[in-house]
Write a protein that binds this DNA or RNA. Structure first.
Lengths: 237, 237
DNA sequence: ACCTGAACACCGTTCAAGT
DNA sequence: ACCTGAACACCGTTCAAGT
């Protein structure tokens, strides 16, 4: 432990000020045109200090991504408290996912950005490890739900699949839908025909029906769960 | 039509030389460090000429993406000629997708890159329209297959879904798996547990089982189709 | 009509000087 | 011990001059 004049809390707070400034800029403009100078201009201290906290521009963006994944985890955790069967809880998570995406497109897209190699190559080791930790946390939440479904006798996973694989099936599918529908380009036929909300719920049901996860989509009225989740999340985000 | 001293073919060839140089650089290094100067250094003409062909660095990368999507379409088209039921043809496409990804990670990741807003914002209108056209072409190929499955009485799509939605379900799922497993970071638990090949086939089957697409995964031996497709594609890519 | 590359504006990163 | 911002190296893009 090295001696510090500036205490940990001030440091942590300043880091947040930098992240907030970067997020504000991206909201008002776009991520492509973000520069360190533009962050510095919105912050009450100098370039050198910003570089004391973040080793590169990409490190700042990765920091933002981590904050988004962390929020997502909190949101998903609260979704699992939906009072119903496990399949409903999973739907509740999907709804939370799409609601948060609708409420804040900027932060939603940031999570996708974290996956691009350009960022991975320039972010600090420390920040990348944090990203991995947060990713595992999210994965663990999914796996716990799947474990519970198995215990409740709602789900028998195929012999060739493990719980993480089932979790990954639902996660990657959601991620894919959002990645492909991320930009609101109206010129594109695909994006005119598809609607994130509808596709997300529908594909989530397809995968769970494919797994034979009870109750099957046609044997249950999911609308109350969907409506309640939308209601609940709209108060949170 | 404006009069030209340099004919169309020379122009087209030179465009390809620029794209090849950029791809070579990315292969040898990485996309994050690509600069126009580095492309110019690998090409027998000047910066100004490069800018005569591409309006920005991002335009060059989008050009590369388009070339990748175009190759993918050709590959998928050849996969649909697999001699079997439509569900097998769909599996054959998935196999072709994963094989091409394994054979050339660089080009595969480029397709994902095209979806990031940083590129969309700086590429030329012309190049983006081309991207949309190629995307539609790919979508159309999927939709034709689904139509054929319906005609063959193998598939009855749910009343709340359209053929493009079913096509999008399979496409976005594949895309999501590849996006999340794209970088070979061994540090990450998720990527240690998952294997693109296995997940892609397995999730593809989950979605199609969920749709009740005949024959269901447990009622048929898919291995011959998988093996034959791998064999066939390995000769192509 | 087309190509060239010097020139310009801007960006990420560093580090000597200051407090 | 920490902060500052001038300085540096580099990058994307343009455009006057040349052929």
């Amino acid at each position: 432990m090295s001696p510090r004049v500036v205490d940990e809390e001030t440091l942590k707070a300043r880091e947040q000020v930098i992240l907030d400034a970067a997020l504000d800029y991206i909201r008002e403009n776009d991520i492509a045109s973000l520069t360190v100078d533009k962050v510095v201009a919105r912050v009450p201290f100098s370039k050198g200090t910003v570089y004391n906290h973040f080793c590169s521009k990409e490190d700042i963006v990765t920091g933002l991504c981590n904050s988004c994944v962390s929020s997502l985890h909190a949101l998903f955790q609260s979704a699992t408290r939906f009072d119903g069967n496990v399949r409903e809880k999973m739907i509740a998570i999907c709804i939370a996912y799409m609601m948060s995406a609708k409420a804040d497109t900027t932060r939603f897209m940031l999570v996708i950005t974290a996956k691009t190699s350009a960022l991975n190559q320039k972010a600090s080791e420390e920040r990348l490890n944090e990203h991995i930790r947060l990713e595992q946390q999210l994965m663990h939440l999914f796996c716990s739900l799947i474990q519970k479904a198995i215990e409740d006798k709602d789900l028998v996973i195929p012999v060739h699949m493990s719980p993480p694989q089932v979790a990954f099936a639902i996660w990657s599918m959601s991620f894919g839908i959002i990645a492909l529908l991320q930009d609101g380009l109206e010129r594109c036929d695909l994006r005119r025909l598809m609607e994130v909300e509808r596709e997300l719920v529908s594909h989530c049901n397809l995968v769970m029906d494919g797994l034979g996860w009870l109750p099957l989509s046609q044997d249950f009225d999911w609308q109350p769960c969907i409506d309640a989740s939308k209601e609940r999340v709209s108060g949170l985000v």
